[in-house]
Design a protein around this nucleic acid. Structure first.
Lengths: 335, 335
DNA sequence: CCTCATAATCGAACCGGTTCGATATCAAAC
DNA sequence: GTTTGATATCGAACCGGTTCGATTATGAGG
């Protein structure tokens, strides 16, 4: 590998001039610049990112930390971020915390050691220690998906209360009253907001909520399955179920199928967040989806703004909240 | 941040002794070692990975390069690799080439600049330039998924011919004769082998294959959909369809649904490779799946073997080919 | 007590860049 | 013909480690 010294020797200038020419061509005379560029070509010089990062104390990489890179929601966001980053000569390091705050922390520390220029972080924790940890991250950071109370960082996400409300409203209009809700972990903002949207909408419609109809699905397939089973074996079953996310909703669908209930004839189903092959799942589930591409675009722009512009680094934290979109399927029956 | 010099000062030894003590405790006297360890504790020293990599010319990171990190097949492999790498104090950098050889190349070059210790690579190209490129990668590299002719590297994958043969055999035994095959890109090894498994099995059963029943689905959803449509509008329709991968098979299911065909009553369907929510898709599709966990384990072990043991680095390239597993569903009808 | 092999430690060079204060160059202004 | 100010270039220090040959300390053997 050719080093900057090889270039300097060939162009007959000092190493510092080569460095200057490469990072700030304007401050070097035209003639020297040409000689240096020619030399770079002939020796095939490419800057060593490690050495550069060490010297500068910052790399041209952006850390992307999520709980599950396989989740298409994060996948779309990642793709947007990557494309935008490449345009601006940055490189995205993808990491997966498996949703574990400990692992997430180790990842962030590792990325910090790598001197990444910025961080796109989907928070997975919620307690005070976690909040302190995120607050103390030294690099430009944009949080997304989960809004965590106490974290004063840029946040990009969707209006989850509205998402819950939209599905509830839809079912109410179809005549449903016995609506069940498979909720997510209480401590997650998205989960609690979605539930709040449900409760409020039911409340303002004057429909009483059967407490047995609110079950905890932990946003996971297995817990969602258990929760759905609890709903379905009750003597007085719900006529409709809302899954607070895709995993619990599809787990509920599986539970219905196994118990021989037909959806939507026996029980209607609606969910928040899309899933990869939703269009071939029978029935096509009525859902509310997030605009992942737009979310990704905002995250990308925001983080690169903070990285690249001097004033951007000091911008106060801001929240960007998008409205979700209603996508009708055929999993909800009119009563 | 505390540096190694702070530690040296506090422990009253030279910097080189600290470095030695940390990377090779045996070569330092017991007393000094303890003093150094104490000093490390009190100043809170953590090695700077950038500086270390620069000096050593190699980092403790492993690059993971695939065409689609959202694909659960790659996700399982990634998880296995990550877990194994963490046990051995390594860190996995995930990257996504979107299946584009150019992008893949840029990623590999970037990782090479980062001096990654090794590479797990799911190849996306096939031409001579690509082969040369992979051959010239300087770091320990394990290829997986696609076996590319001409690349002399460790390879980990499944017996794709067998996968195609198993599904074909199953359909033949159910009495099907007019079996169609939605193939993948001819230049991909997995695709051609799966097709070969189909052709050979049909051949040895003495069943003639209608050339119109072999269509190209490019392994993608959109092309698979088009291909399936071409199959379904033929006057003489197949009684069964094999999708060479999950995307084309599910696209075919969608096409059937849209044209009003019932699966499996009108047409049977089988596919290679699982998909995330396969158990809630109606009908449950009969498939042949790869043992992703085992594949991931082999990849992980092999790459760390090459990285960590001196003789491992020089091992000749080896192929590891696993047999896929048949998973019956209810998408294939007995004729 | 001296010798010599071995173990422990050190100093300096190096990995490949960046950065900043100092110096050299040059043209315009006095 | 200086002075001056801007522009171009350079040298040296630095980022934070590793490595290796050289040097010193240690202890067994004679």
């Amino acid at each position: 590998m050719a080093t900057i010294r090889d270039v300097a020797k060939l162009a007959d200038v000092s190493v510092s001039t080569v460095s200057l020419a490469l990072s700030n061509p304007g401050r070097v005379s035209q003639k020297t610049l040409e000689r240096i560029r020619a030399a770079v070509q002939t020796v095939g010089y490419v800057v060593d990112p490690l050495a550069q990062s060490l010297a500068r104390g910052r790399s041209r990489m952006i850390g992307f930390v999520v709980g599950n890179v396989g989740n298409p929601f994060f996948g779309d966001i990642r793709r947007e971020l990557e494309n935008y980053a490449i345009e601006h000569d940055h490189f995205v390091l993808i990491t997966d915390s498996s949703g574990k705050p400990d692992r997430e922390r180790a990842l962030v520390e590792h990325l910090s050691g790598l001197k990444v220029a910025g961080l796109a972080l989907a928070p997975s924790g919620h307690d005070q220690a976690y909040v302190d940890f995120v607050q103390n991250i030294k690099m430009p950071t944009v949080c997304f998906d989960q809004k965590v109370a106490g974290i004063d960082r840029d946040f990009v996400g969707s209006d989850n209360r509205l998402a819950g409300a939209m599905l509830t409203e839809h079912l109410l209009q179809l005549g449903h009253r016995r609506i069940a809700f498979i909720a997510g972990p209480k401590h997650l903002h998205t989960a609690s907001e979605r539930l709040r949207g449900f409760m409020e909408t039911m409340g303002s419609a004057g429909v009483e909520v059967n407490p047995n109809f609110i079950v905890d699905g932990q946003f996971t397939r297995s817990a969602g399955y258990e929760a759905a089973m609890r709903l379905l074996v009750q003597p007085e079953r719900p006529t409709a179920i809302i899954g607070a996310n895709n995993a619990v909703a599809l787990a509920a669908l599986q539970a219905m199928q196994e118990l021989g209930f037909n959806c939507p004839d026996d029980i209607s189903l609606a969910m928040i967040d899309d899933v990869q092959w939703s269009s071939v799942i029978t029935p096509r589930i009525t859902m509310v989806i997030q605009d992942t591409l737009k979310l990704g675009g905002i995250i990308a722009r925001r983080i690169l703004h903070r990285i690249m512009s001097p004033e951007g680094a000091a911008d106060p934290a801001e929240d960007f909240v998008l409205s979700p979109k209603f996508v009708p399927g055929n999993s909800c029956k009119k009563l």
